[in-house]
């Protein structure tokens, strides 16, 4: 049996960190060389999209989790609420 492969973890992480570092360097470099053409001034902040991606992602999860305190209910919520009427 175990010819079945699990997903390529190591390869993934190595590639990921290389790409991450390269993107950080490229952003500074290209911003300095005026390669980018954005429409809003705030997009010219160094590493704007990196910060936007990271913070946007984390805030989304955290705020949603806070919303979940109220919004997540029992799996059979509506069935129970409707009682014997169904």
């Amino acid at each position: 049996m175990n010819k079945l492969r699990v997903y390529p973890k190591k390869l993934f992480w190595r590639l990921y960190f290389i790409v991450l570092v390269v993107s950080l360097i490229l952003d500074f470099l290209w911003l300095y060389l005026h390669v980018f053409h954005y429409h809003f001034s705030f997009q010219y902040i160094p590493q704007f999209f990196a910060i936007f991606g990271l913070l946007g992602c984390m805030l989304l999860i955290l705020i949603a989790k806070a919303m979940g305190i109220i919004l997540v209910v029992d799996e059979d919520y509506y069935q129970k609420k409707s009682g014997k009427s169904n």
């Binding site: 993107s23 290209w30 390669v35 980018f36 999209f49 992602c57």
Partner: peptide
């Protein structure tokens, strides 16, 4: 370059957040 780079960088860091 602008669009490809900005969106790629955004995803790389979104992954970190995830």
């Amino acid at each position: 370059v602008t669009r490809i780079f900005s969106i790629t960088q955004m995803f790389i860091f979104a992954f970190l957040g995830f």
